[in-house]
Computed example of a mutant assay.
Amino acid sequence: MFKKLIDRFFHRSPGPLVPDEDLALNPLTVLAVEPPEPVEMIDIDNLFFPWLLGMGTGVADGMNDAENRLLRTLKRVADADDPATADLVPRIPSVIPLLLRSLRDRNVSNSQLAEQVSQDAVLVAAVLKQVNSSYYRRASAVKTIEEAIAVIGQNGLRMLVAGVAFQPLFNAGLGHFTGQGAPRVWELSEPYGVACRHFAKVRRVDGFEAFLAGLLQGVGVIVALRVIDQAGGAAPGELRSLDFQSSFAHYARRLACVIGKQWEFPEQAIAAIDRSGPASALASTVRAADRVGKIRVLVRHGMLRTDLAEVCLEESGATACYKEILAMEDAQERSAA
Results as ranks from 00 to 15, higher is better:
110 N>V: 12
110 N>T: 09
111 S>L: 07
111 S>R: 14
112 Q>L: 13
112 Q>C: 11
112 Q>A: 05
113 L>C: 11
115 E>I: 11
115 E>L: 15
116 Q>S: 08
119 Q>A: 14
122 V>H: 09
123 L>D: 11
129 K>P: 08
130 Q>M: 08
131 V>C: 09
131 V>A: 04
133 S>K: 10
133 S>A: 12
134 S>Q: 11
136 Y>S: 10
136 Y>L: 15
137 R>Y: 00
137 R>G: 09
138 R>W: 00
140 S>M: 11
140 S>Y: 01
140 S>E: 12
140 S>R: 15
141 A>R: 15
142 V>Y: 00
142 V>C: 14
142 V>R: 05
143 K>H: 04
143 K>S: 05
144 T>P: 11
144 T>C: 01
146 E>Q: 12
146 E>Y: 00
146 E>F: 00
147 E>Y: 00
148 A>W: 04
149 I>A: 02
149 I>F: 00
151 V>A: 05
151 V>P: 07
152 I>H: 00
153 G>Q: 02
154 Q>P: 00
155 N>K: 08
155 N>S: 04
158 R>F: 04
159 M>W: 01
160 L>A: 12
160 L>Q: 07
161 V>R: 01
162 A>K: 06
162 A>I: 08
163 G>T: 05
164 V>Y: 00
164 V>A: 11
164 V>C: 10
164 V>M: 08
166 F>Y: 15
166 F>Q: 04
167 Q>R: 13
167 Q>C: 01
168 P>T: 05
168 P>N: 05
168 P>C: 03
170 F>Y: 10
171 N>A: 12
172 A>F: 14
172 A>M: 03
173 G>F: 03
174 L>K: 08
175 G>F: 04
175 G>M: 06
177 F>H: 13
177 F>W: 13
177 F>C: 02
177 F>A: 02
178 T>D: 07
178 T>P: 02
180 Q>A: 05
181 G>M: 01
182 A>F: 12
182 A>P: 09
182 A>S: 14
183 P>C: 04
184 R>S: 01
185 V>G: 02
186 W>S: 02
186 W>Y: 07
187 E>Y: 02
189 S>F: 10
190 E>I: 10
190 E>S: 05
190 E>T: 14
191 P>D: 03
191 P>E: 04
192 Y>E: 05
193 G>H: 07
193 G>F: 03
194 V>E: 01
194 V>M: 03
194 V>C: 02
197 R>G: 15
197 R>T: 13
198 H>W: 11
199 F>D: 03
200 A>H: 04
200 A>L: 12
200 A>N: 09
202 V>I: 14
202 V>G: 02
203 R>W: 14
204 R>W: 07
205 V>D: 07
205 V>M: 04
207 G>R: 08
207 G>S: 12
208 F>W: 04
209 E>Y: 04
211 F>P: 05
211 F>T: 02
212 L>C: 09
213 A>H: 05
213 A>T: 09
214 G>T: 08
215 L>M: 13
216 L>E: 04
216 L>M: 14
216 L>D: 10
217 Q>V: 03
217 Q>L: 09
218 G>K: 11
219 V>Y: 10
220 G>F: 07
220 G>Q: 08
221 V>S: 00
225 L>D: 06
228 I>T: 07
229 D>I: 15
229 D>Y: 03
231 A>N: 14
232 G>L: 08
